[in-house]
Design a protein around this nucleic acid. Structure first.
Lengths: 200, 200
DNA sequence: CACAACATTGAACAGTGTTCAATATCGAAT
DNA sequence: ATTCGATATTGAACACTGTTCAATGTTGTG
C-alpha cells in the first residue's frame, strides 16, 4: 500500500497526468484507462478517483496542457511589423509541426467526446479562445480598416482550415504522405486565402 | 430464438446497419454497442459476429454508406460551364448541410479510430478519393493550363479546410452558433482561397 | 497511548468486445 | 414419416472498461 502522505494530492495529480500523457503518446488514447494510469504511478483506481472526478476530467486536464504547450510554441516568436504574411504562415507551420510531434495527444483534444451532459469549463474554453486570438492578431495588420467581425471570421476560417488539413492528414484521408506535404498544403491554404482576403 | 432462415445473411447485415445508424443518429457513436444493435434487430450478439468480423467492421460499413450518401448529394446537380465558383461554393454548402443533418454519424467517419493493425480496405479508400475527385473537377475550369499537381493540391487544401471548419463548429470549438454562421465561414474560406488561387 | 481524521485499497457492479460449445431448426435422403 | 447431417442461433464465459464505497491502513494530535 502506498503510504499516506507519500505524495500530496497535487503531486499525485501531476504524476497521473504525466503517466497518462505517456500512455497516450505511446499507445493512443483509446488505450488509456484509469487502471493503467493508476498502476503506472503506483496507486490504485480508487486513489485516481480521489484526485479526478472521472476519466473525462483527467482527459480534459491533459488536453488543457496540450493546448498550453501549443499556445506557448505559437507565441514563441512575436509578429514582426510588416511581415504579417510570413507570421501567419509560420503559425500554420508551428501548428502542423506540433500536431505531428505527438499526433495521439493532439488528436485527443479534438476526438474525445465528453459526455453530453458535462459542460466544458470556462477556463478551458478560454484556452481555445486564446489560440484564435493569436491568429486574429496576426491577421489584423493585413486587414486595416476592416470591421472586427471580418477579422474574426478570417481567423476562424484560416484556423479551421489548417486544422482540417491536419486532421485529414493524420487519418490518412488526404492520400498525402509525410509531414512536408502537409506543410505545403497549409502554406497553400493560408497564402491563397490571404491573397483573396487582402485583394492582391 | 429467431428462426433459422427468417432472414438471409444479407438481410441481417442490412437490418444491423440500419439499426446501428439509428442508434448513432439518436445517441451518438460512443453509445453504439454490439448488444444494442443485436437486440434492436431481434438477434443476439453471436449472430452479429457471424455477419460482421467485429465492431470496427460494422462501423466501417456504416461509414461507407455515409460517404456514399454524401457523394450522391454532392453530385446531384452537375457543374455548369462558366459557373465554377458557384459550383464549388455549392459543394461546400452541401457538405456543411449534410454534416449538420446527422452530426453523430458524420463525425463517426472521422472520429472513429480503427485498430492500428487493421488496414482500411481499398474499396473504402476509393470512396474518399471519389469525393476529392468531385472537388478537383470543380476547380479544373478555374485552373486552365496549370499542372495537375496544383489542382490536386488546391482541392485538398479547400476540402480539408471546409472539413476543419465543420469539425470545429460541431465540437463548439469555434464559438460559432448555428449552421448559418458555419455556412458563412466556408463561403469565406472557399471564395477567398479561389480569389487567391486564380489571381483576382 | 488512544483516537479521530484521512489516505488508500480492492471488491463489486454494470457495461464493453469477442469467442465458441451447446442447442435449435431446417432440408434432404431414406 | 423419420432420421440425420448441416448450419443458424444462442448465451454463457473471458478479459476488459468506468465508477463507487465499505473496509482497512496510516498518521498527527490531544
Amino acid at each position: 500500500m502506498a503510504r499516506r502522505s507519500d505524495h500530496s494530492r497535487e503531486e499525485i495529480r501531476e504524476m497521473a497526468l504525466s503517466a497518462a500523457e505517456k500512455i497516450v503518446f505511446e499507445q493512443g488514447y483509446e488505450k488509456l484507462s484509469a487502471r493503467k494510469v493508476a498502476t503506472a504511478i503506483g496507486y490504485t483506481v480508487g486513489t485516481l478517483y480521489l484526485v479526478f472526478e472521472n476519466i473525462d476530467d483527467l482527459i480534459l486536464n491533459i488536453n488543457a496542457r496540450t493546448l498550453d504547450r501549443l499556445h506557448a510554441q505559437m507565441t514563441e516568436s512575436p509578429p514582426k511589423p510588416g511581415k504579417a504574411r510570413e507570421y501567419l504562415l509560420q503559425l500554420g507551420h508551428v501548428y502542423i509541426r506540433y500536431a505531428n510531434e505527438d499526433p495521439h495527444r493532439w488528436a485527443m483534444v479534438f476526438e474525445h467526446r465528453f459526455a453530453e451532459e458535462r459542460t466544458i469549463p470556462a477556463w478551458y474554453q478560454e484556452k481555445i479562445a486564446r489560440m484564435f486570438a493569436v491568429v486574429e492578431e496576426g491577421i489584423e495588420p493585413l486587414a486595416m480598416g476592416r470591421p472586427r467581425e471580418e477579422i474574426t471570421q478570417a481567423a476562424r476560417a484560416i484556423w479551421g482550415g489548417v486544422h482540417g488539413i491536419c486532421i485529414l492528414a493524420l487519418t490518412d484521408t488526404l492520400g498525402v504522405a509525410g509531414v512536408d506535404s502537409v506543410q505545403e498544403l497549409t502554406r497553400s491554404l493560408i497564402s491563397n486565402y490571404l491573397k483573396g482576403f487582402t485583394g492582391n
